[in-house]
Computed example of a mutant assay.
Amino acid sequence: MTKKLLLVSAFLFVCMSANAQQADKKYRIGLSYGFGSEFNNKDYTFENHFYKAQLYYLIKETKHFQYQILIQPEINFAKHQLLNLYFVKPETHDFEQKREEYTKLKNIHEYVMNVGFVVRKPIGKIYSCYFLGSIGPMITDTETERMSKGFAFADVLALGFSANVKAFQFDIRPSLRHVSNAGLGSSNAGYNTKNIEFGISYQL
C-alpha cells in the first residue's frame, strides 16, 4: 500500500510539474519530514513521524502578503498504546477482551491528502513567516480504542518560518494536529498531537 501511494504521488507530481512549467513562478514543489507526540495525558501514548510531498500554488500577492494553496500527500507512521484500560467502559461489547487488545503497543499507518491555505508575510527579500490551516481525508490501517479503522480526517494548524536561497526555500513549521472520523466510525475520540516539521521546496 505504501509503495502504491508513493508511486501515485510521484506520478501526480510529474503531471503537475509539467503543467506548472507553463506558469510564471506560481508553483513550488517540495518535500518535508516531521515528528511529534500527544499532549501529556494519562489515557494513552501516541508518537509519530511523517513524510510529505508538497505542491504550492500562489493565488495572489499583495504589497504585504502572499496567499497560497498547499497540497500535501502524506504518509504518517505512528505508535500508540492505551494506558488507562478503564477508557474502555464495561458497557462496551466484549470490553475485557478489548481492554486486553487495546493496551498492546500498536503500529499505525496513516495515508493523508492534506489541502491547505497559506497566508505568508515576507520579511525582506530572504525570509518570511506564515500561517497554515489544512484539512484532508485520511485512511488509517489500525483500529484502536480512540478511533475506528478506515476513513477519517486530519486537521492541522501551523505557524512557519522560511528562508529563500536562490530558487530553494527552507522551512521550519511547528504545528498542532487533530485526527478524527467526524462520527463516521464507531470510535471517534481521535488523537491530538504537537509536531515539528522541516521542509525544502523549489521554485519552478
Score class of each variant (00 low, 15 high):
E101S: 06
P174H: 10
H109M: 13
E91W: 03
S186K: 12
N19T: 01
F46G: 02
S128Q: 09
T92H: 06
L58V: 12
V115A: 13
E91K: 09
I108W: 01
T103Q: 14
S186Y: 02
R99N: 06
Q54K: 13
D141C: 11
N164R: 14
I59C: 13
G124L: 12
L70H: 01
T103C: 13
V179Q: 04
G150Q: 02
V156T: 15
H80N: 09
V112C: 03
R177N: 11
N41Y: 01
I172D: 05
K42E: 05
F131R: 08
I71F: 04
Y67H: 14
R120Y: 01
S180C: 06
G124N: 07
M147Q: 11
I196S: 03
A158Q: 04
E145V: 02
M1D: 06
F153K: 08
N164G: 03
K60Q: 14
N114T: 01
G150F: 00
K3I: 12
A23E: 08
T144E: 00
G160V: 05
L176V: 10
M113W: 06
L7Q: 15
L5E: 12
L83Y: 02
L204N: 07
V156L: 15
D94W: 05
G124I: 08
M1I: 04
A10Y: 08
R146M: 10
E145I: 01
K98H: 09
V118Y: 03
P174A: 09
G199I: 10
V115H: 06
L85A: 14
M113D: 02
E74K: 13
M113Q: 07
L82F: 07
F161R: 04
I108K: 05
N19Y: 08
D171W: 07
A167Q: 15
A152F: 00
N40A: 12
N192S: 10
Q22D: 06
A18W: 08
K79M: 09
L85Q: 11
I69R: 09
A182V: 11
T45R: 00
Y102E: 02
K98I: 01
H109A: 05
G34S: 13
Q22R: 13
S128W: 09
F153S: 02
A154F: 00
P90T: 11
T62L: 13
Q54G: 07
Y130I: 04
A23C: 09
T142N: 01
K79L: 08
V118H: 04
Y127H: 15
E197M: 01
N76C: 10
Q66N: 14
T62A: 08
Y191P: 00
G116I: 04
A182Q: 11
I108H: 06
T144D: 00
K98R: 15
K104V: 12
N192W: 09
A189G: 01
M138E: 12
R177Q: 07
T193H: 06
I126P: 02
K104H: 12
Y102R: 00
I108P: 00
G30F: 00
Y27C: 15
S201T: 01
H64R: 15
N114C: 03
Q203K: 12
Y202M: 03
Y127S: 14
L159G: 10
G199F: 00
A152L: 06
L176E: 04
H64F: 14
T103F: 05
L184A: 10
K121R: 15
K194Y: 07
T142K: 08
A163Q: 09
L157T: 03
I59K: 08
S180M: 05
V115M: 10
K149N: 04
